[in-house]
């Protein structure tokens, strides 16, 4: 029992964390699928969302609102933020070359970072207890309660978004626009509405993900390092596949916990770049990721 306990614990905690990563990566993939924009500023969306949440929940000047109301307000602000950013920056880039939009997201990254730094300062803050904490014991395996909660919330949210895309008319419209924007336009799907919804969802998912991670590790600018993990998850799973996000997140997180336990004594800190190495391997062997559609070059 003892020999299995450690790997099992690692794998289980990896699954818990990985589902959150997978959920966060979904925001990135949704933006890419809808608008073909490779949003390098995604990490900063999460940071901004987490800080907004802190303003409503954890900060000393926060109004004493019940937790669900505060969270709801945060999400509303996040959606508004996504819409504003879409209107200001990305509306005029519809139809422009993709590299220009990519550079625009890099510029947006810098702007968002400076907004956060000016508004809230560079310090780390603690998000007040939004999730119950404490260990949960399953036999010999110890799991953190807050991770279990994030896992459940991430699963619920993932299922909600999957339902949206599969069953609702709007989700169908967005999928159609991804496949062929011109044809979708002929059928009445407007590119502008598509863009608005995509960016609102991006901000929404980034904020939820930011809150989930911030409850565990605190609200700080370092949350933006999330974007590297998100990129790794997205490339491992496939750039245009939502299923791939979840699987990529699981694989990445389990792999990271396993390497950090087994390899850290020998190569200190290797767990931090494990995600990069895995992403590189996947990109070299199968660039479209595990579940992504293979790009076929038409000459």
């Amino acid at each position: 029992m003892d020999a299995l306990t450690v790997p099992l614990q690692l794998i289980l905690s990896g699954i818990l964390v990985g589902s959150v990563y997978g959920f966060i990566a979904m925001g990135f993939v949704i933006t890419y699928r809808s608008t073909q924009v490779f949003n390098m500023a995604y990490g900063q969306f999460a940071v901004l969302g987490a800080f907004i949440a802190w303003t409503f929940i954890g900060s000393p000047e926060a109004p004493r609102l019940p937790l669900p109301i505060a969270l709801f307000l945060t999400l509303v602000v996040a959606i508004l933020l996504g819409l504003v950013i879409e209107r200001l920056f990305f509306r005029r880039m519809i139809g422009r070359p993709l590299f220009a939009t990519f550079m625009l997201t890099l510029g947006l990254l810098a702007i968002l970072r400076s907004v956060v730094m000016v508004a809230w300062g560079p310090k780390s803050l603690a998000l007040a207890a939004t999730l119950p904490k404490g260990p949960v014991n399953l036999g010999d395996i110890v799991l953190a309660k807050e991770y279990l909660w994030s896992f459940c919330l991430a699963m619920v949210a993932t299922l909600a978004f999957a339902f949206f895309f599969r069953r609702t008319k709007l989700g169908l419209a967005m999928r159609a626009a991804y496949d062929n924007q011109v044809a979708a336009r002929c059928l009445g799907v407007s590119a502008e509405l598509n863009s608005q919804i995509a960016w609102a969802m991006c901000a929404l998912i980034a904020t939820i993900g930011g809150i989930l991670i911030a409850t565990v590790s605190g609200v700080s600018l370092h949350l933006s390092e999330l974007v590297m993990l998100v990129l790794a998850v997205v490339f491992i799973g496939g750039l245009d596949s939502l299923v791939g996000c979840i699987c990529g997140g699981l694989i990445l997180a389990v792999g990271t916990t396993l390497t950090s336990y087994y390899l850290n004594p020998h190569l200190p800190g290797i767990a931090t770049i494990f995600s990069m190495i895995l992403m590189l391997l996947v990109l070299l062997i199968r660039p479209s990721g595990l579940f992504g559609t293979k790009q076929i070059e038409r000459v």
Binding site: L106, I111, S114, M117, V118
Partner: peptide
């Protein structure tokens, strides 16, 4: 950061 980002955008 902000000014650089703004200029690039």
């Amino acid at each position: 950061y902000g000014v650089y980002g703004l200029v690039i955008v």
